[in-house]
Amino acid sequence: MQSRIPNWLLVAIILAALVGFGDSAFLLSKHISGAPIPCFIVTGCDSVTNSAYSFFLGIPVSAIGVVFYLSMGFLVMLYWDTKKTLFLKLISVGTVVCLLASLYFLYIQAFILREYCVYCLISAITSATLFTLGMILLKKLRAPKVLA
């Protein structure tokens, strides 16, 4: 049976996850050290990341981001290792959750805080990318198997 999940798709997911991981890890490091965040393009980095909305159930959102992006990459690795489609399904579900979260945070920035944090915007872009890739993945999963 030919593998119907193209490798480029999985590599793209890993790359998007790495970008998201780096971005979240950067914000988390700044949060831990209390250092100011160098903002560019927009000006609200410090306001957004210090607002009450940057915490979820007492956990900094950046920490959740780190764990989430790491998991996405990890799931791809697990699929490569075991070829179990369960992991791909989890990825697809994960990217939907990720997108919903990103939309929520975009809403907060645009309408509640009226300030933007460029690193959150970067995360929104990686989320959107992952969501797109996740939907392509889902489509591939549902396609009829090609027999060699």
Binding site: F21, A25, F26, S29, S33, G73
Partner: peptide, 17 residues
């Protein structure tokens, strides 16, 4: 994979702090 994640993580932390 673990090395890549570790390097990115530590590198990001060092840059950020």
């Amino acid at each position: 994979a673990i090395l890549v994640v570790g390097i990115i993580g530590i590198g990001t932390y060092e840059v950020a702090t």
